[in-house]
Amino acid sequence: MVAFICRRLLSGVALVFVVSALTAFLIFAGGMDIARNILGTNATEEQVAQRAAELGLDRPAWQQYADWLGAALTGDLGRSYFSSEPVLQALSTRLPVTLSVVLTAVLVTAVLSAALGVLAAVRRGWVDRFVQLANVVVGAIPNFWLALVLVSVFALNLRLFPATGYVPFLESPAGWLLSITLPVASLVIGGLGAAMIVRSSVIDVLRLDFVRTLRSRGLSQREVLTKHVMRNAAPPFLTVMSLAFIGMFGGAVVIEKVFAIPGVGTLANNAAQRGDVPLVLGVVSVTVAVVVVVNLVIDILNGWLNPKVRVQ
């Protein structure tokens, strides 16, 4: 187990290297005039060249990346070219915001899709058809459109939730919950497709003979489901949840924009557009690390729930 975790963490570190190198390559290959972006349209060529030299932007791309990597390995992610804010500080204020939205969304998605999927698999009939239909309808709705509809109904008309903004949990738990409800809902509704995975894997397990054996002995539906079926239906579900997490992390860029949430998505988006290399690399690396860790946690959870997939 320990070896497995170490192996996964090591490959995660390798992934961070690869992704950050690719990102750096893409920024530099894009030919963006970063120094010009910093100084604006009116600066002269001399001023631009001077600023580029100050920031080391006149050196080869690989050298710039190597410098960044060297510093990053010692825990120094540098400062934003534009605001001079330490990248770690920017991340420490932004990442918890995105994570609190995305993780809540994943949790709610997991609970709802598990409930709906099991219900559809067990009841079949109209419940099943409804869940399947809803899945198709929901799957066809783009995140941002859904977000806009939710805002206009629940924030602007009914005034139940704030239309924009984010309240930190420590400042006000209730305010936090209100501020993330609509963003989470827009992510969750898009992620409910996982219910179909639960449905089909529960149906598959319900067809197995060991379930018949249990039924023949008079075990209730609930006992059969909770004690015997769920664990076997869990692996594909957890895999879908880890994909949902990554998808929602990506979707957060759009959601953060619609709800004006100060998360890592808008940070990355803005930094990339400006060519704020240290910030982009910092965000990308930390995001990849988070994804690696979450996937690892889900794999461990998977093994814990279901020894069938447990690593040797």
Binding site: L148, V151, S152, A155, L156, R159, P162, A163, T164, G165, K257, V258, F259, A260, P262, T266, N270
Partner: peptide, 17 residues
């Protein structure tokens, strides 16, 4: 408050935020 998205900005104004 920063709202890059015009819709978010408009929504913030409409909702009194």
């Amino acid at each position: 408050k920063t709202y890059q998205d015009i819709t978010a900005r408009l929504n913030a104004a409409k909702s009194g935020e």
